[in-house]
């Protein structure tokens, strides 16, 4: 963007759209396990995810842009997560929060799906058990960066 001498701001429509889009990534309210509590902490006064424009947690997948898979996904929950992802409207992003969601973590057993990337595509993985809220904020930052840099899901995606 450039400011002209007359006080006008010039930008490509694409950049403005991406800027707007990246500043309003609304997550889906889907708490699974321990990480969900840290996901809640992110909205608290101390961490304040509102600074990134992502404080609007939507309960309906139809209104959400970002799915934060916060915690271990059990075999019984797997189809539900999958269905929620399918119900979200494009463009959509997924953060795999914590060791369990990313790889099964310490629960290498019959009950836990070993990494949600076996059922849905993941954009950003956050390590930790559970990750600190700072870690999750950084992940949201990365998603924003991805949108601004012309990654997938842009409104006016160029071929």
């Amino acid at each position: 963007m450039a400011v002209s001498p007359g006080g006008f701001m010039l930008a490509r429509l694409d950049d403005v759209a991406r800027w707007a889009q990246s500043s309003s990534v609304w997550p889906l309210t889907m708490g699974l396990a321990c990480c969900a509590i840290e996901m809640m902490s992110v909205t608290s006064a101390e961490y304040d995810i509102a600074r990134l424009g992502s404080e609007v947690f939507r309960s309906s997948p139809r209104q959400a842009d970002l799915m934060i898979v916060s915690g271990r996904v059990a075999q019984k929950m797997g189809p539900v997560v999958k269905r929620l992802y399918d119900q979200m409207a494009d463009p959509k992003w997924v953060i795999s929060m914590g060791a369990c969601a990313s790889s099964g973590g310490i629960f290498d057993n019959y009950a836990i799906i070993q990494g949600i990337d076996t059922i849905i595509p993941v954009d950003v993985y956050v390590p930790g058990c559970p990750p600190t809220p700072d870690g999750l904020l950084y992940a949201v930052n990365l998603i924003q960066q991805q949108i601004r840099e012309g990654g997938r899901g842009g409104i006016l995606a160029r071929s």
Binding site: P79, K82, Y110, Q114, T118, I119, P121, R152, G153
Partner: peptide
């Protein structure tokens, strides 16, 4: 069942192919 297939069967049953972005 785990050794036989690391990826649950239901993952393949949707219009979205897991692992690649929708685009």
């Amino acid at each position: 069942e785990r050794e036989r297939s690391p990826r649950p069967a239901f993952a393949n049953k949707s219009n979205v192919v897991a692992g690649t972005p929708p685009s």
